[in-house]
Design a binder for these strands. Sequence first.
DNA 1: GCATTTTGTTAGTGGTCACTCACTTACTTA
DNA 2: TAAGTAAGTGAGTGACCACTAACAAAATGC
Lengths: 199, 199
Amino acid sequence: MRKRAELRKAEIVQTVLDLADQIGPDRVTTNAVAGEIDVTQAALFRHFPSKATLWQSVAEQLAETMAAAWEAALQGADGPEARILALIGAQLSQIEATPALPMLLFSRELNVENDALRGVFRTQLARFHALLLAEVDQAQKQALFRPDIPADDVVVLLTSLVQGVAIRWALGKRDFSLLDTGLRLLNAQLRLLSTDERI
Amino acid sequence: MRKRAELRKAEIVQTVLDLADQIGPDRVTTNAVAGEIDVTQAALFRHFPSKATLWQSVAEQLAETMAAAWEAALQGADGPEARILALIGAQLSQIEATPALPMLLFSRELNVENDALRGVFRTQLARFHALLLAEVDQAQKQALFRPDIPADDVVVLLTSLVQGVAIRWALGKRDFSLLDTGLRLLNAQLRLLSTDERI
DNA sequence: GCATTTTGTTAGTGGTCACTCACTTACTTA
DNA sequence: TAAGTAAGTGAGTGACCACTAACAAAATGC
């Protein structure tokens, strides 16, 4: 069935993400993608000049979705602690919705073959770090967080928490909710960071 | 130059690890390995019946080294906190000495192609988790650690710390000491976990 | 010092990869 | 409704992959 280019492009990008999760990013061949959407392999090259540019489209779509989710998280929360919770919750949801993300970070495609792809992800991670840092800084200035740990280190602890639980989830059987588990651990960590002795 | 099988085997295994770091685990082809040690590609199959068994040898060697490092860490430290420091220090050193380790965890080779390889790594990670859990349990029983966070969650926070800082190091420019940075963050986290208010 | 075993080479195998090209069919528009 | 364009096909390309078989030479054992 013939489709318009825009539709087909979106379909291809989504299929790449699905396949990346199912069989691993580096096993996503043009043949596999084409077979999944019942089109010949050569048809893909009508829509993307090369496989690398196809991956770049995937990265750009992911970057947009993530940026939008962070924006929404920040808008919907008041105070540093709530915003940290919202930001990390958004990130966990994003990973749960796109399970290929963690593996993609370590894929050959990103790390070896495709410099542009790597650039997009690096920029996104740096942005997330900066957003968290601003909130942690606020929290320490308002004496909500213990002041004796550098804000930068706190951010690394928080992002590590996300990565750690995401890895356990992605490499394991995914038999627990990434969002729930992540938020439970985050609450524990926030309790440790808090200056309020009662909680 | 002709070498004895045992020497050659060890050389091949080491070359696989080196190349896995330099070009990524999934780019380690038999041709690349052979070229690195100035031997024809076919010679590799004198020593390993298949590429999969070659990777298994790599995994076994890594598993042995790690187990020995953990053993030494536990022997040389007194008290739960010191043992946690030693265990995680050993793990950070191991990653720094074998930078391919984090990427290997997410490689196609491990996750898709080679079930035996995946088994070895899963077992190792579970062991590390268990070792840490025993120490955290002790620390809470001796009232060195806050009792209000489940020991299992504390272990996840600690292993996440290792993974998080290792990822930053492996995917970045490696322009900081993994061991130093990891231990600095670990000390911060241990301070947060401690019941002693003075530190 | 000769025979045997071990370690290596040369030259292939079939399979898969991204990508190309000449051609056809479906859709759009004048 | 005819002409032009957009989307898709079929049949290839060379490059690279893990792996094999027949043969050669180096080391070892008697």
